[in-house]
Design a protein around this nucleic acid. Structure first.
Lengths: 198, 198
DNA sequence: GTCTATACTGGGATAGAC
DNA sequence: GTCTATCCCAGTATAGAC
């Protein structure tokens, strides 16, 4: 006897976020208008604001699932030998870089997060979780003699993230092939942490 | 018998760009209004548009001098031993990261450049010059036996830039001390290119 | 729940006096 | 060259019919 079908409702929201994500990636948040989103999603503004209170809310929704994704990843990672786990995590973090449109979205979220405290909490927390987990894995690998860290584990973890940032940064060069360069990234990281040859 | 004093004219333009740069760094390009700039620079909008045709033009002007700066740097670098020159260039590229407000501006320009073709040309060209010069220096250092590149010089140069991007990326973490981490960056690069201990 | 139409706001840019 | 006043438009969000 309820008036809304929650499944349909969620599906529609998802349709809107998916459509909006593409536009945000392509044109940026500020330059994407609500009208653009409505046109692309083939709905009216009135309908859109039935599902989301503001434009920003659409943007946030897009990133809300990331935290859970990462949590799942680390569960899987912990079943591996620590250093292999680190490499797996890095690969996972690099995946968005392989798709230019997703990469645009990542650039955008960094930008927006620095000015939207609510979004910042979401993203910043996530980053910190990744860093902490990476630091733990690196420490274990070090203790097991698989790598020989030249700096503390936390710093190393930070720079592992920094290397991923670097990968994204270089996407501005049209000749830069992220698929190929992920292996270079692994080489740099391996040499940095003194990984033994396998 | 000329009606404008070019020196005064340039000084005023400079005053506007300097003022605007601070605001762009702090709030981002899109969220900085022309009114904001005028207020901060203590001029009227009419006056501002006498010096610049559009808001974007102000933004571009800020980065127009970078090319020349870099050219000068490479002239000085070439007087050094190649590997020392590489480290000098890297240090130079890292300088903006040491000042949070300047760092904000760098984030902003990447963002904007991906959507402003004219700005893109400016920035992209500059990046390419840096990469080419770095690649040359790395090749020379390699040939001199000072380093042992595991990849081609161009790829190595690209990743040297990527590491600098990573440094900027990590600035989002408030605990990240760029001054300290520049030395970690040098360590990572040195290990990557197989630099011999001095 | 979805639409059309529109109110309201704010920002970029211009006109024209001084 | 600089100002004030203002135009014009884009964009978010709402009202109210269906």
């Amino acid at each position: 006897m309820r008036t809304v079908d929650p499944v349909k409702h969620a599906a529609k929201k998802r349709h809107i976020t998916d459509t909006a994500a593409g536009l945000f990636a392509e044109k940026g948040f500020d330059r994407t208008t609500v009208a653009d989103i409505c046109k692309a999603a083939e709905i009216s503004t009135g309908s859109l604001f039935h599902y989301f209170p503001t434009k920003r809310a659409i943007f946030r929704e897009i990133f809300e699932q990331d935290g859970q994704d990462n949590a799942e990843m680390f569960v899987r990672a912990k079943e591996l030998e620590p250093w292999d786990a680190v490499l797996m995590v890095i690969d996972h973090l690099c995946v968005p870089a392989l798709d230019r449109s997703v990469a645009g979205l990542v650039l955008e979220v960094v930008q927006q997060a620095s000015r939207d405290p609510e979004l910042w909490e979401l993203v910043g927390h996530n980053e910190q979780v990744v860093r902490d987990e990476l630091a733990q894995l690196l420490q274990k690998a070090h203790d097991a003699g698989r790598i020989a860290l030249p700096v503390d584990a936390r710093t190393a973890a930070t720079w592992a993230q920094g290397l991923v940032d670097g990968l994204f940064g270089r996407l501005i060069d049209p000749d830069f092939d992220a698929t190929v360069q992920v292996s270079t990234l692994r080489l740099i990281l391996s040499r940095f942490v003194g990984a033994q040859a396998p």
